[in-house]
């Protein structure tokens, strides 16, 4: 046990030389080889499934030819990336992608936490279960189907809104699929509808996992429910919030293709508010299907996300190491 304490204090010693660090890690590896073995199958899988194919990113810099293969195709530098920045759309798609993602991250996270806390407060267990099931249902429906459901509400002539709801309120029918001003709201609502169950269930599991002793101690101190939530529940799930947000930031340049392409029914008139990097790439390559160009887009999206995560993780980890990704 002495050794272990020694490791702990040494590990905190960030000013150690790297050779010393390495030696320490190797000693740990020897002593805790059981842990290493436990992790081995998973690491091996990642190596094969994720790392082995990564040699393929070179395709983004090549003019891919099937007969020559990935390695044999000729290098063309950044030629494949050009189309991403070729028009003034480049600004619009980047702006849309980032703004929507920020909005979605903020909303889904806060709604998820809120719902999870409420669910946890509800005492009838069977009701909790029922609510959980209901709010998770939208998660199960593919975006193609969601697009039809949205259409059922928004259809110009036959839609529920124009047909039933708006006349009841005395509002003239709206041509939903050609008016850009409504779409930021519609897309946000759809995204929330689909994402809330998922997000809630993660935080709910986190809340359930909180050691009950904390609450008991608080109760003895006379803290009411609100105080308990504020002082115990929220801080306890902060590591989750932080990590989920960091992960979401990594994908900030990616957008849900189905949400932005299928749900607005690929309406050209809406493109200023629905065109994101993914839909742009899809449309651009529709007629050409170029592997090099599509991997270039993916690489660009990943790279930006990567930089953002590395930076934000550094900030988070300076404040609290437990809340950081790595």
């Amino acid at each position: 046990m002495k050794n272990e304490v020694a490791y702990k204090s040494q590990a905190d010693h960030s000013k150690m030389k790297w050779t010393a660090k390495l030696a320490l890690e190797l000693r740990k590896a020897k002593r805790y080889r059981a842990l290493v073995f436990m992790a081995l199958p998973g690491l091996l899988y990642l190596l094969i499934n994720n790392y082995l194919p990564m040699f393929g990113v070179v395709v983004a810099f090549k003019n891919y030819n099937f007969t020559k293969g990935i390695l044999g195709s000729e290098w063309i530098g950044f030629e494949n990336f050009k189309y991403l920045f070729a028009t003034k759309d480049a600004y619009i798609i980047t702006r849309n992608t980032i703004l929507y993602n920020f909005l979605f991250i903020a909303l889904t996270t806060s709604a998820g936490i809120g719902t999870a806390i409420i669910l946890n407060e509800i005492r009838k267990r069977f009701l909790t279960k029922m609510y959980q099931t209901f709010i998770l249902l939208p998660h199960l429906i593919s975006m193609v189907i969601v697009a039809y459901l949205v259409l059922a509400f928004l259809d110009v002539e036959k839609g529920f809104l124009n047909n039933t709801l708006l006349p009841m309120l005395g509002i003239d029918p709206i041509s939903w699929y050609s008016e850009t001003k409504y779409w930021p709201w519609i897309l946000t609502l759809v995204s929330l509808w689909k994402g809330i169950g998922n997000s809630c269930i993660i935080y709910f599991a986190a809340i359930i996992g909180i050691d009950n002793e904390y609450y008991e101690a608080a109760r003895i101190d006379g803290a009411n429910r609100w105080r308990q939530i504020w002082n115990i529940t929220i801080p306890s799930i902060m590591p989750y919030v932080s990590i989920m947000t960091l992960l979401a930031i990594g994908r900030i340049f990616y957008s849900d293709f189905g949400l932005f392409y299928q749900v607005p029914l690929n309406s050209g008139l809406l493109s200023s508010v629905t065109n994101t990097i993914d839909t742009y790439v899809f449309r651009a390559l529709m007629t050409m299907g170029d592997i090099g160009m599509s991997s270039a887009a993916g690489l660009y999206q990943s790279f930006v996300g990567f930089i953002l995560v590395v930076v934000s993780n550094a900030i988070v980890s300076r404040k609290n190491k437990d809340n950081a990704l790595y």
């Binding site: 499934n49 194919p53 990113v57 395709v59």
Partner: peptide, 14 residues
């Protein structure tokens, strides 16, 4: 692990 969530080799190499 985190790295695998951002970068992948793409469809064809996989």
């Amino acid at each position: 692990i985190f790295f695998t969530m951002l970068f992948n080799g793409g469809l064809v190499p996989t």
